[in-house]
Simulated assay, not measured.
Amino acid sequence: MQKTNTTLNPSVCCEVPHTKRGHERRLALLISATELFLENGYDAVSLDDIVNHAGGSKAAIYKYFGNKEGLFKAICDYRRELFFKNMCVAFNSHQHDLRTYLIQTLIGFYQKITCTENAAFMRLVIDRSQRDPELAVYLHERGPEYVQKTIACALQQATQQGQIQCREPLHSAVMYFGILRNLEWKVIMGVPITLDHAEIIDHIEYCVDVFLNGHQIH
């Protein structure tokens, strides 16, 4: 039985693998295509190139992804899951101290964006997004918007429990991620980061303290 994935082209139907071998074949295509896109750029890579690199046939690409665009979107979904795994978890006031939670989330985010492969992939995504507005919206909803909402929920929960005062949690969440915006853009543009690890931690802790100060209950 086939399942229709949410793709940029709703007329394209993709089959979800139901066997271990099918999952392995799909993952191999994702990984091979990622390597080729990062090495040569999206436009320079053909489906034949991907098949020659990964093995198999183009029929598998059509079967699991629909087309080249669907394959790239699936790669973005796969890498997003890896990027945010264990990094932006839901806040639980019974398990987390808010300050520690906010600091650790930013440290995790910084470690992920400074990974060489992640930085290269972010550049690739920005390039593709400029040419495909629908893809840009799709990736924003499942990337920046997703993590902002996660932090907004944490701020809302802390507000409800009387720990802080935050009237606009989503606005504050956007402000919170602005703490690393300069460093993030340096990474994307290939500008050297001159701060060492200890200085990065000091920067994050200082900014989180200022952020929480602005949300004190008066």
Rank of each mutant, 00 (worst) to 15 (best):
A120C: 02
F121L: 13
R123H: 14
R123M: 00
V125K: 10
V125E: 05
I126F: 14
D127P: 10
D127Q: 01
S129A: 12
S129K: 02
R131D: 02
D132H: 04
P133Q: 12
E134Q: 10
L135K: 13
L135N: 15
A136K: 06
A136C: 03
A136I: 15
A136G: 09
V137K: 06
V137F: 06
L139N: 15
H140F: 14
H140D: 00
E141K: 15
E141H: 12
R142G: 12
E145N: 09
E145V: 04
V147S: 05
V147C: 11
Q148G: 12
K149N: 07
K149A: 14
K149D: 15
T150Y: 09
I151E: 01
C153R: 12
A154V: 10
A154F: 01
A154Y: 06
L155T: 00
Q156W: 00
Q156L: 09
Q156S: 07
Q156V: 00
Q157C: 06
Q157Y: 00
Q160T: 02
Q160I: 00
Q160L: 11
Q161V: 04
Q161D: 05
Q163V: 06
I164D: 15
Q165N: 04
C166G: 13
C166V: 04
R167N: 10
R167D: 02
E168D: 05
E168Q: 15
P169Q: 01
P169G: 02
L170T: 05
L170I: 03
S172F: 07
S172H: 13
S172M: 06
A173P: 08
V174F: 08
V174Y: 11
M175V: 02
M175L: 13
M175S: 09
M175A: 11
Y176Q: 09
Y176D: 09
F177C: 13
F177P: 05
F177E: 10
G178Y: 14
I179T: 15
I179H: 08
L180I: 04
L183K: 03
W185M: 12
W185Q: 02
K186L: 03
V187K: 08
M189R: 07
G190L: 08
G190T: 01
V191I: 14
I193P: 11
L195R: 05
D196G: 03
I200V: 05
